[in-house]
C-alpha cells in the first residue's frame, strides 16, 4: 500500500487516489489542427521509464485535487509533489 503524499492533505493511503498517468501531456490547443498521427500520439502514446517519472494523481476520496508527482517506478519512492502547470522540481539523479 503506497503512501501518497497529497500536497494538501499529507500522506494518505493509495486507495484514496486515482492514478492519472504521465504528467505534462497537454490537451492540444487546437485538436482540429492536429494530423492523425499527432492526435494518435496525444491519445495513445505515453512514456514508460524505469526510474523517475513525472505523473498525475487525483485525491478523489480526499480534497479532490489533481497534482503531479515525481515517483520512482522501481522503488516507488516519491521525490516530490507539485501543482499542475508547473515544472517538476529537481529530480534525484
Amino acid at each position: 500500500m503506497l503512501s501518497v503524499p497529497c500536497p494538501w492533505c499529507g500522506p494518505r493511503d493509495e486507495t484514496e487516489f486515482r492514478y492519472g498517468g504521465q504528467a505534462h501531456v497537454a490537451y492540444p490547443a487546437d485538436p482540429a489542427a492536429c494530423s492523425d498521427a499527432e492526435w494518435a500520439g496525444y491519445l495513445f502514446m505515453r512514456d514508460n521509464p524505469k526510474g523517475w517519472f513525472a505523473e498525475r494523481w487525483f485525491h478523489s476520496a480526499g480534497c479532490r485535487r489533481w497534482f503531479n508527482a515525481v515517483r520512482h517506478t522501481v522503488t516507488y519512492e516519491f521525490a516530490a509533489v507539485y501543482a499542475p502547470f508547473t515544472q517538476p522540481p529537481g529530480v534525484p539523479s
Binding site: 492533505c9 486507495t15 480526499g62
Partner: peptide, 8 residues
C-alpha cells in the same frame, strides 16, 4: 479537536 478530513 478541530481536525477534519475527507477520507474512507
Amino acid at each position: 479537536p478541530g481536525s477534519c478530513a475527507q477520507t474512507h
